[in-house]
Nucleic acid binder design. Structure first.
Lengths: 390, 390
DNA sequence: GTCGCTTATTTTCCACTGTCAATGAAAGAA
DNA sequence: TTCTTTCATTGACAGTGGAAAATAAGCGAC
């Protein structure tokens, strides 16, 4: 069965038009002249590309807010009409699925989640269908179409094929998720790895805007890494890239579930931190919030565990910076709740371990509410729509 | 003073023409139809792009060697005429400079080297000028022009600017080498980092041909890494990338000159291996050849040192593979003389440390005679010529 | 108020690229 | 000999995006 046809086709049939739209999308309202400068095109090209996009409603002219240059004719601003279309983003974890409805600017309009009773693809598909149905119902209220659905899954995902090659949490192997989900939802579906999806969101809508080389490091249950090199998200030849959690920090360190010792994961994974804090304080600890509370309460042992975690993260980031020389590393993830506990160690370890100019790389942090993962999935759907031709 | 004008301009003014030429250059003699298929262009485009290149002598039709397809009209092969032009490649180390004269296919025709009395930029420039003069004299015998000179230097090099930002071996900072060398040699000059230059050579003429994502790891005095992602050599935002020598293997390991312990360099650098072998065998060892001889003679302690080095290298490679998911890693460098001593450990450690599909990455080794470094520099010069417009 | 200056945007060509479809070439097969 | 198949070439052509000129719209000087 062929995948559902897209309800609408994005009217940007040339690379230049795509680029112009993306420029406006990422850099907020801009004058046509600015767009031309940023995109390295002529003003004429911008005028021509913008017209059909305005006619189709994807771009609008901000009549009210004109910018007055110091001299010369006032310019009119062009911006993306976020309300023109909606997208759905879904993040599937081992026991829940999170969904968001976003607009074309990837702003979250509605967020929902459902528990996942079992992990069999069929059951997950059913939950996914239900979640999407709910979101589509919500979408009705906006009176604009939902143009795509992005799904983010941890593990090895082949974006081009739309298949989940291997997902440890779901215990899936070679599930053609895009095809299946397209059939059950009736929407065009993009499937991607969760960290890469987040990276796409940062690249178009976040702290990676305008950068051609940056990395996203997520700290939480696992330590993940998304990379953008030469302006493109790195997918790797075997749909695996950004595996950073098992960089060795200290081969005499704590054992890691991967079978070796002293991996970054063993220092900075949520569960590992909690376990370690439990060990050191002698308190039975069941979840990372408790560990965090103990550390925030000033327990020196607990604080030490977080400090060690920060050091490990800093070293991991330095490894990435040394290898790729990104302009910026965006640190994010649920683990950032503990940021005050290890910020200093991250920076110190990074500075100590980054070589030469790699140390000039800019470290920024971004809080990451959990729905952000689903928003990342929506960003991949938006990208899929805007670049449908490629 | 403006840099010297190029004696010739490469007659490929469109991206398609460049791409077609590079395809023929890398994939040897091809039929036009094959070129079209590989480059994803129409046959008509190939015919049109090839004509001026043949007229200018860069491509030739192999009249003798026709290929007979099973059916249909025999095809004529097109190949690059290596003898059409010459290039110079120079590698500058702390105490010597190596130069090669290559043809357009980057085959070495002449190799020369000179000692470097001092490291001051002025003195190095003088030696460089002399070496280039010698090579130009040799070039006269071929009756074709020398169209460019590539220079490779270890350290932080800004290729676009043509400046050496920082070279630890030369003790240089911010030397505008391309400009200076262009003035003294009268040739168009490209300057690049040595490992990146080697990576360019592999990409166009070696084991990286046709791959869009691969890595080159060099083992020798230092451990280096060149990366190709999305079909382009990674330069990093701060002209530094591929720093792999100080990945931590074991934080309780031997001290490294960088001030930390257990870096890859501390296990697998030439000098470090030699020192370690000396320590363990109680023999005073002054250079790595002696250490190698001891190990080859079967001294168990020495063999163990090499085994440890191999393990460290394998882990370093796995880190790269996990992070970037390359299709292939090319292991090269002078240190490969000891390959038989650590090949097994490299593979084993790689397999043990690579996650999931990253382990499918292909490991190949390439012997690296020292002049190969200079050949890499020549490859950057060839690239500079072929892509002069971009 | 008009003129001249500046910058933004649009319009009007226009060069150029690469594709399409038709044609010619050169085998081997029937 | 004719047909089939694949390679190569040609000429027409549809887009692309740029250059330059024209138009728009403020500001300040007069």
């Amino acid at each position: 069965m062929p995948p559902p046809l897209r309800a609408e086709v994005f009217p940007a049939h040339t690379p230049a038009a795509s680029q112009i739209f993306t420029t406006v999308l990422s850099h907020g309202p801009l004058t046509r002249a600015d767009v031309a400068r940023r995109a390295g095109l002529s003003a004429a090209a911008v005028t021509k590309a913008v017209r059909p996009l305005i006619e189709a409603g994807y771009l609008v002219e901000d009549a009210d807010a004109e910018t007055r240059p110091l001299l010369g004719r006032p310019a009119s601003l062009v911006r993306v009409d976020g309300g023109r279309a909606l997208f759905i983003g879904v993040k599937i974890t081992g026991d829940e699925i999170f969904g968001v409805l976003t607009d074309l600017c990837c702003r979250i309009r509605v967020a929902r989640h459902l528990p996942l009773p079992t992990r069999a693809p069929k059951a997950v598909l059913a939950s996914l269908a239900e979640l999407v149905r709910e979101l589509l119902t919500e979408a009705d209220g906006f009176g604009v179409p939902v143009l795509g659905c992005g799904i983010a899954v941890a593990g090895e995902v082949d974006r081009a094929q739309g298949t989940v090659r291997y997902s440890p949490f779901l215990e899936w192997r070679d599930v053609p998720l895009a095809e299946l989900a397209a059939m059950t939802t009736g929407l065009p579906v993009t499937v991607d790895n969760d960290v890469r999806a987040l990276t796409v969101a940062e690249q178009w809508f976040g702290a990676g805007v305008g950068l051609s080389d940056f990395a996203v490091v997520t700290v939480g249950a696992g330590i993940g890494c998304g990379l953008v090199v030469h302006g493109r998200v790195v997918a790797g030849a075997h749909s695996v890239a950004g595996e950073i959690g098992h960089i060795t920090i200290d081969s005499a360190g704590p054992p890691c579930h991967c079978g070796r010792r002293g991996c970054l994961q063993a220092y900075a994974g949520d569960a590992e931190i909690a376990a370690r804090v439990g060990e050191i304080t002698g308190t039975p600890i069941t979840d990372s919030a408790e560990a965090l509370a103990l550390a925030h309460a000033g327990h020196p042992g607990a604080r030490e565990v977080y400090a060690r975690a920060g050091e490990a993260i800093g070293r991991g980031i330095a490894t990435v910076a040394n290898l790729l020389g990104p302009e910026r590393v965006i640190i994010s993830g649920e683990g950032l709740a503990a940021y005050d506990l290890f910020a200093e160690q991250i920076r110190d370890a990074f500075t100590a371990t980054a070589f030469g100019s790699a140390a000039h790389c800019d470290l920024v942090t971004r809080p990451l509410p959990f729905e952000e993962w689903a928003r990342g999935a929506a960003a991949t759907a938006i990208r899929g729509f805007v670049r449908a031709d490629r």
